[in-house]
Design a protein around this nucleic acid. Sequence first.
DNA 1: AACGGCTTGTGAAGACTTGCACAAAGTCGG
DNA 2: CCGACTTTGTGCAAGTCTTCACAAGCCGTT
Lengths: 249, 249
Amino acid sequence: MTEQRGPDRGSTGDPEGGGPGEPAHGRAAGRGADRGRVVPEATVARLAVYLRVVTVLGGQGAATVSSDELAAAAGVNPAKLRKDLSFLGSYGTRGVGYDVHLLVEEISRVLGVTRHRNVVLVGVGNLGRALAGYGGFASQGFTIAALFDADSARVGEKINGLAVQDMSVLAASCRTAKVTIGMIATPAEAGQQVCDQLIAAGVTCILNFAPIVLSVPDGVDVRKVDLAGELQILSFHERRKSAGLEEVG
Amino acid sequence: MTEQRGPDRGSTGDPEGGGPGEPAHGRAAGRGADRGRVVPEATVARLAVYLRVVTVLGGQGAATVSSDELAAAAGVNPAKLRKDLSFLGSYGTRGVGYDVHLLVEEISRVLGVTRHRNVVLVGVGNLGRALAGYGGFASQGFTIAALFDADSARVGEKINGLAVQDMSVLAASCRTAKVTIGMIATPAEAGQQVCDQLIAAGVTCILNFAPIVLSVPDGVDVRKVDLAGELQILSFHERRKSAGLEEVG
DNA sequence: AACGGCTTGTGAAGACTTGCACAAAGTCGG
DNA sequence: CCGACTTTGTGCAAGTCTTCACAAGCCGTT
Ligand SMILES: NC(=O)c1ccc[n+]([C@@H]2O[C@H](COP(=O)([O-])OP(=O)(O)OC[C@H]3O[C@@H](n4cnc5c(N)ncnc54)[C@H](O)[C@@H]3O)[C@@H](O)[C@H]2O)c1
Ligand SMILES: NC(=O)c1ccc[n+]([C@@H]2O[C@H](COP(=O)([O-])OP(=O)(O)OC[C@H]3O[C@@H](n4cnc5c(N)ncnc54)[C@H](O)[C@@H]3O)[C@@H](O)[C@H]2O)c1
């Protein structure tokens, strides 16, 4: 009932069954929308990468890309890429490749980023400031609609043209702006409480930077960004690499 | 040859074979070190979470934890947690649980964080400043040993008591401090070049914040933190949740 | 109109993960 | 010292994901 998605991927046992073994052809109208197709979680995570890569290729003037080219650019196996894209429907042309523009459109559609989404950020400290000032969100279809902090000394301060607001208006603000995604950049101690407040305000997706495991009701998605955890994973691999030196015998 | 590890988990086809199907009992001396045991990638990612959770529990005075308690706190299935911990060896006591202190020690050992590791950070901009000022790394066994930036206006500036250095001394600095982990917080355009410089300086593990796929030689591990990507994944789930409303028929 | 070359889409096999269920093993009260 | 109770460690089955290999399909050329 909690199972955070993060660096690993977890699997909360989605109600949907069916897997790759499904009689995939014969369903899902050949070239139309992906009606009823289940996109695996692992694929969703890669779609974000493909979207960025294919957008760049499009910007460089490419009209089509082959799965080999795209896979190389995204750093994945070509077969995996093709299978991933096949979940969106059949948008490639055999012998030619994928139409770059169409691909951008279709991936965006599946990811649900065809229209901008509003996001709120709670906790405007060290990290929160960096996030608030980051232009990379807007270019990917996300607008930070509001900033919140519990520190009254910070309320009212403008960051990147956006005023920091008091926590008391969080719920009203989220509902007005139809915000469904919240980012938590408060200290760990405040994380769970802020999370609860966000959910009470109607937020159903949370990106958590605090190093804690949030507990949320069903229907709310949480992804966590755990930087120290990332370093520990790297540390593990580092240790393994150098392990050979001492354990030769 | 590239395959970044990030939100998803990828699998670069590690040379190691063997899997869970291995005759796990009968090997790995019952209670001693985990000699020769292969720790699955998915488990490694969770070990970082367990380490944090169990550390907190220890700080609260708990002497032992059961797999159920620990699993609940970490947000995973108890059986999964036990299997994960079994890769470190047999450090639990049946009928009692795990010794908190011992567990911290063993997980730290496997993750290779028993002694502090030095890390360098390249790119002291918006995000880099936040990272440089973050105290959470040190408490997890990582010390930011040096900061680098290409902007001469920033070289010399002190952040959190550490001076920003010029890129020209990166290699020397890394070798002197025996740094094997590097963090990249430069704009996307500079990412690959900086990555190459880090590798040339002897770095073998990279944590990348730039929204690009780095290409690195074998033997170098990359993990990426893609915030816009995380939001897109959340967006996908959000879209799915609200899809029922329009597709009822 | 048929052909050769190239690339997609996907069945099938294999690899990896998860989670159940339970025997093994240890504790605690009597 | 024993028996009841608790909790670990893990065999096993069921998923989920990855990768290979190749038929099917599209294009341009002859
Ligand atoms: N700074 C980094 O680079 C970094 C890296 C990784 C993780 N993190 C994590 O991100 C979080 C924020 O880090 P930071 O360095 O920005 O910390 P910070 O202390 O600089 O900022 C925290 C902000 O949250 C606000 N806050 C505290 N309680 C609140 C509440 N109940 N409601 C709303 N706002 C509240 C504070 O007023 C402050 O402005 C921490 O959990 C930290 O562990 C930070
Ligand atoms: N700010 C955020 O919250 C945020 C969030 C997600 C991702 N990112 C990514 O992190 C990276 C950094 O973001 P930022 O907002 O800090 O950008 P920034 O422009 O504020 O900082 C970039 C820094 O890198 C330095 N730099 C440029 N080229 C360099 C080179 N070749 N060698 C060394 N240093 C160089 C610049 O001088 C600057 O100080 C970007 O790739 C961005 O997409 C940032």
